[in-house]
Structure formats: structure tokens, C-alpha cells
Design a protein around this nucleic acid. Structure first.
Lengths: 336, 336
DNA sequence: TTGTAAGCGTTATCAT
DNA sequence: ATGATAACGCTTACAA
């Protein structure tokens, strides 16, 4: 691979001058510039980012740590964050921690060794151990999607309480009274927030949410099926279920299809995420949409600010979810 | 950030010795080793991979270039390749080209500047322009999933002809005679291969595949809907449709649900990929499964061989698809 | 077993 | 406007 030295030799100038031409850093006469540019082209010279990174103490690299890649939410984060980062000249190093704290920690440590310029981060859960590691390392970082309130870390989240409220209000205004919820793992703060918003809004309508109407799921399709089985068996079964993500809501629909329960005739179902899935299944899924693109833009914006020296500790960006009503939810037909 | 020099000073040895302790490269006496290790811990020293990479001429970095992240196939590739690479000590730089040749080229060029150790690559299409760039740069690389026969590049593919054959045989043996196909973009060789396997297998059964029974889709959900509309309208409509991916097959099911066409009663549908979606929709989708995990293992294996100096130009690994029959396909009920 | 010195390919500083 | 030189943080001869 050709180096700057070769270009300098061919152009008959010093390496310094070549560097100046490439970086446009300082004034170079028009003639030398032409000569250097010609030499660069003819040698097909490509600057070595490793060397310049070592010297300039940057890497033009952003580390993105997510739980997994095969998952609508995180695939979407990868997509948009990648988009915004490359638009600003940064490449993206992706790490999946598979919800294992050790893996998360190992990965973060690797990013630090690699001197990435910044990190965007969806943690395993409240139990994540990487935080102090990161605070010590002084690498600019932004937490996205799974944040914990009152931490001294910049973070971007959807208003999860509002998300719960949207679903609750939709059901309550539709005349539903026997309302249930399938949650994600309790160790993840946003699941508690969503449930809180859901529950307190039902309260406002004078509708209770007894413990047996809350099924503890894990964000996976199968737990939606299990949740539906639990919430729809026995007497006094639910007439409306909010699943805290679309995958579990799809599980509910699957259970209903298999059990001959009409949706939305006998049961209204709402999910969350507005994943591609929600348009594809039948009936099309009503859902609480997260503005992922906006979240990612905010996250990358915050990170870039931090990279350029702005203090962002504890900064919080909260974006608003909205309800998308499709076919899986409807007002209650007959009175309770 | 602490450097080796600080460790050396604290331990009272030379930087060389510190390096030796860290790399285990050469013999160090037990006592010095202890001293150095203690110094490393107490300073929380982390080796700078940029500096060592510059010197050792490696980066422990693999570039993975795919069309997009929000897509079952490519998300799966990201997941497994990431898994296999990190297991071998490599981090993964992900780039999405969005099926734009310029973006693809720009991204590849960036990877070369960054001196990644290897590249795994799903090209835009047969029209991709990055190939000569890569050949010149001598960066080890492996093409996955969208390969073109007879290129002097290592590649890993599923046997796409066999995939088409599996679907065709399934329909033919089920007594279907009016059989149709929704393809992906013709510029992608694997779509032509799939169609070829499908068509020639139908031939073996004495079943024709007239041009109007082949709908040119684009791998997206919507084109599945359009394809179904086209193939199921008019007289003599298809009794079986193979969509070249699950997304389009889901579109077909959506169209049927909306049009009151019973699946599999009136129409059998088979997809391809065995995406998560296929289990979730109703009826559950029969599909031709690609062994992604195996493909990724092969790809990473090939790449690592190349990185370690083995010549892999033109090497081809072909893995076998298999048919998964779920609810969306069944033998024809009544005689033609 | 340990250390010295040179070098990886850039860029920053200081001269000229 | 251009160049010489040192430095970024590490590893690898080579020497001791």
C-alpha cells in the first residue's frame, strides 16, 4: 500500500505538504497542489486512517452497542444511527451483547481500547455494569432506549409513560373495562414506566388493573402467546390487551387465531413499536409508535456535541410516541 | 489516558518489557511479570489498539457491508457474523449501502482507508462497482448471499437453484398445476437462479411456467400484494404461489385475507428465508429455509483463512436450503 | 531475561 | 508557501 512518502517523492515535495493538500489545513500554492493531486491519483494513494488517528487522537468511529441485531427495534436503531453517523463522516462499530452483562462489559471495554470517538448504548438492563467503566474512560456517550432516570449520562428515550397512557386511553374511550397488559422484563426500567402510564391512566377512568391482569412477558413472541392464554382463560376474561411490544402483540393475535377468538370483535389488541410486522399481520395491528428516527437523530446529535467538547452529562431528550389505530382494536360492541 | 510509558515507569521496567507481558510474546521472569501486572491494574492501563495496529499492521476489524439493517436476512447476517468474528477477537464495522452502488463504493473505500483486516460483503447487485477496487487493494474479502458465478472472489451462497426446486417439487407433488412465482429484482443473480431451479423442476413434472405466471417483485411486502393481485385475477388463476422471500409471501397472504381467498384451501403459498415473520403470521408460512448460521460460519471461516494468508480466490461454499412446511401450503383439494 | 533504538504513517510545531 | 523534525503509543530487531 502506498504511503504519503511515495506521494511526496513523486510530487517532489515534503510529506508535510502532501498532508496539507489532503487536509486543506493550510495554504498551498495552486501549482504544488495540482502536482500533489496528480501524484495522489496516479499512485491511487489512500490516507491511512489508523496513522492519522493515532496522531490526531481521533478515530472517526462510533461504537453502537445493542442487545441484538435480529430485532425490529435494534435493527432500526442500527439503521438510523448508521445513517446519521456516516453522514457526519463517522463509521459505526456494532456490538451485540445478547442481554448478557459480561458481554456488554467486554464489548464496551474493547471500544475503549479502540479509542472510538463516542458510544451509543442500549444497556442490558438496570443491572448493567458498564457505567462506571465508561464514566472513568471519559468517552463521550449517549444512552438510548433503555435509560434509567436520574443518571448522570446523556440519554434519549421515548416517553414511555405517555406510551402507556395512549394505549390505556384508547381502550378506556372505546368502552373497555376489562383491560390487561403484557409487559417486558421488569429489570428494564422502561417496562415499569410503560406499565405505570398505563395503570395510572386507567385509574383516571376509574378502571382498575388488578395484578392478575398484568402478565410478565419478556418481549418475545412466545410470551405473547402465553400471556394471551393466561389473560383469556377463565371467567371475566379481558376484552382488551396492551402488549408492550409488537412481537408479543403478534403472539396474542396468533393465540386468538388458534383459539377462534375474534379480533377486534371479542378482543382488542394494541402493540408497541410500529414494527414492519404490524402492517403485515392480519388483522393489522394497532400500535403505539416510537419515533425511532427522531430518537436516533437526537442521540447522534447529542453524541456529536459531546465529541466536540460540549458537556452533556445528564442531558435528557424525550420524544413523544403516538397511537396508530389499525384493525386489531375497536370500541367494545355490547355493554359490559 | 494512561500509556505504556506510565506502566513502565511505575513498574520500573522498560516499555518493551511491558509489551512482552501484555502479549506473552517472550519470556519474562515471574517477578517482573507480577510487578508489571500490578502496575497495569493500578493504573487501569488499557492497550491502545490504534497504536499497536499501526505497528503490527492489523486492525482486528472486519468490515461487513450489507444493503440494510432492518431486514430479516441482513439482520441475521449481522448477528451471526458479529458473533463469529467477536469469538475470534475481531470487531465488526457495519455499513449499509441501501442498494445504491455509489454508497457501496464509498463505504468499501472507507474500509480500505481504515485498513480493516477483511471484508464480508453483500453487494448491491450484478452492477456493483466495488469489485476492482477491492481486488486492487488486496484486502481479504468474502462475498455472501449475492454472488455471481465465475468471479475470482471467495463466496458463500445458498444453493438457490435447489431452493427453487424444493418449492416447485412441493407444489407439483401436491397436485398443483397452475403454479406461479413472485421474484426479486432481476439484476440480482440469485433471483434468476431461484427462478431457474423453480422453472426447470416444474418442467420435469411436465408443468409449464408461462411468462404471465412470473411476477417481477422487489423483495418487499408491497410487491407481494401486487403480485398476488396480478396472479390471482382473471380466469385460470394460480393455485400455488412461490414468493422468493417471506416478505412478499406475507404480502400474498395479506392480499388473500383481504380478498377472502382461503389459504391453503384455495391457494398454497410458500416463501423463502424462514424469517421470524413466517411463524408469526396466520396461517403460518411454509418456506424455504436458508441456513444463515452455517453460511456465516463458512464466510467467517473463509475470511479468517484469507487473513492468515491462505489463498481463497474463487473459492465457493454452497450450502443447502430445506423446505419447512407449515400451514400455508397443502395438496390441491379437488382435481384440476 | 531485559533494554535500546528504530519504525509503523500520519500531523503539529517551529523554522525558513 | 514549504520543509525539517518530533511526536502519537506501540512492537520488533538487535544488543547486552
Amino acid at each position: 500500500m502506498k504511503a504519503m512518502r511515495d506521494v511526496a517523492a513523486l510530487a517532489g515535495v515534503s510529506e508535510t505538504t502532501v498532508s496539507r493538500v489532503i487536509n486543506g489545513s493550510s495554504i498551498v500554492s495552486a501549482v504544488t497542489r495540482k502536482r500533489v493531486e496528480r501524484a495522489i491519483r496516479s499512485l491511487r494513494y489512500k490516507p491511512n486512517l489508523v496513522a492519522s488517528g493515532l496522531r490526531k487522537k481521533n478515530s472517526l468511529l462510533v461504537g453502537l452497542v445493542v442487545p441484538e441485531a435480529v430485532h425490529f427495534t435494534f435493527a432500526t436503531l442500527i439503521q438510523h444511527i448508521h445513517q446519521d453517523c456516516t453522514a457526519r463522516g463517522f463509521d459505526v462499530l456494532v456490538g451485540c451483547h445478547g442481554n448478557r452483562p459480561e458481554t456488554e462489559e467486554r464489548f464496551i471495554e474493547g471500544l475503549i481500547r479502540r479509542h472510538v470517538d463516542g458510544i451509543i448504548f442500549t444497556r442490558v438492563s438496570d443491572e448493567s455494569r458498564s457505567l462506571r467503566l465508561l464514566e472513568r474512560s471519559k468517552v463521550p456517550m449517549v444512552v438510548i432506549d433503555r435509560a434509567v432516570a436520574n443518571e448522570r449520562i446523556a440519554h434519549v428515550v421515548v416517553d414511555n409513560r405517555a406510551a402507556g397512557a395512549l394505549a390505556a386511553r384508547h381502550f378506556a374511550e372505546g368502552g373497555h373495562r376489562r383491560i390487561a397488559c403484557i409487559t417486558g422484563r421488569e429489570k428494564i426500567a422502561l417496562c415499569r414506566e410503560r406499565l405505570r402510564g398505563f395503570s395510572e391512566t386507567l385509574d383516571e377512568y376509574g378502571i382498575g388493573l388488578p395484578a392478575q391482569s398484568v402478565f410478565p412477558g419478556d418481549f418475545k413472541f412466545e410470551s405473547g402467546i402465553e400471556g394471551a392464554r393466561a389473560l383469556l382463560s377463565g371467567r371475566n376474561r379481558a376484552s382488551a390487551i396492551w402488549a408492550q411490544n409488537d412481537l408479543m402483540a403478534a403472539g396474542v393475535l396468533k393465540f386468538c387465531a388458534a383459539s377462534g377468538i375474534a379480533v377486534p370483535g371479542e378482543l382488542s389488541v394494541v402493540g408497541m413499536d410500529n414494527s414492519g410486522l404490524s402492517r403485515m399481520i392480519t388483522p393489522a395491528l394497532s400500535t403505539v409508535s416510537q419515533p425511532f428516527e427522531e430518537m436516533c437523530t437526537e442521540a447522534v446529535g447529542l453524541l456529536m456535541a459531546a465529541i466536540h467538547g460540549t458537556e452533556t452529562y445528564g442531558e435528557r431528550r424525550m420524544v413523544e410516541p403516538h397511537l396508530i389505530v389499525r384493525e386489531s382494536s375497536a370500541p367494545r360492541r355490547s355493554p359490559a
